[in-house]
Amino acid sequence: MHVLEIDGVSFSYGSTLALDSISFSVDKGDLLGIIGPNGAGKTTLFSCMLGLLGGYRGSIRIFGEDIKKNRKVFQKIGYIPQKKNIDRNFPATIEEIVSLGITSSRKDKSYKERILSALETVGLSSLQDRRIGELSGGQQQRVLIAKAIVNDPELLILDEPATGIDLETQNKFYALLRKLNGENKITMIWSSHDLDAVNKLATGVACINRSMFFHGQTHEFFENPDLLKAYSESSMQAHMHMHDHH
C-alpha cells in the first residue's frame, strides 16, 4: 500500500485549468520534492491533498483511504504551511501551540513529555514558555514543525516551509528535515523553489507545470541537462508571464 496515491487529479478555477491529470505515488520513507515554476499548480495540488479544495476530478488516497470519504486519515499526517505572519499579540505559549497538534483528548502523563520531546527535536525546549508571537520567523516555523510531529505522524506535508526565512535558519531547517526523514523515518512531501536543497535532500522529484513534467529519482532529474534546461525555460516563461500581468 502506498502512503499517498494521486490518480488522474485535475482541478479548474472556473474555465482555467490549474491541474491536468496529475498522477504519482509516495512510498514509506520517501522524501518527495515537488518543484515547478510559479503558477504551476503546486499550491492547488497541496490544497487538494490536504482536503482544503474538494472539487477535483480523480482520486487522492492517503494510507489507502479516499480523503473525500474518510477525513480521519488526516490525523495521521502533519502539515507545515508556508511561513505566515503570526499575530504578535497572540497570547498562546509555544507549549500551548504544540499541544494543538495532539489529537487525543486524554491529558495523561505522556502528554507533556510528548510536547517536550517534539520541542527538543526542533531545538526549542528552552523557549517553551515564550509567546509564539515573540519568536523570529524561523523559530515560529520550527514551532509549527514541532506541532506537526508531536502526534507521531507517518506522513509530513510541507508547503514551501522555508520561503521567507534567512539563509542560516534555512540550513538548520533542512538539517531538521533530513533528521526527521532519516532518523525518525517520517515520509515527506515537500514543495520548494530551492532546487539545490531538493537535490541534496529529496529521494524523489515530481516536477509539475499544470501537468506532470517529470516524476522519478532525484538524480535522474538533476543529472539530465535537457530536463534542467526545459525546467529553467518554463520557469523563465512563468516569471515573464507574471511580470506581464503586473
Binding site: 490536504l50 482536503g51 482544503l52 477525513r71 480521519k72 488526516f74 490525523q75 499526517i77 502539515y79 504551511p81 505566515k84 497572540f90 498562546a92 500551548e96 501551540i97 499541544s99 494543538l100 497538534g101 489529537t103 483528548s105 509549527l144 506541532k147
Partner: peptide
Amino acid sequence: YKKLVYITFDEEQAQVSG
C-alpha cells in the same frame, strides 16, 4: 476549548488536522 483555540490560531491548519 482546544478546538476553539486552534481555529483562532489558524483555520487552515485546524481544518487540515481534521
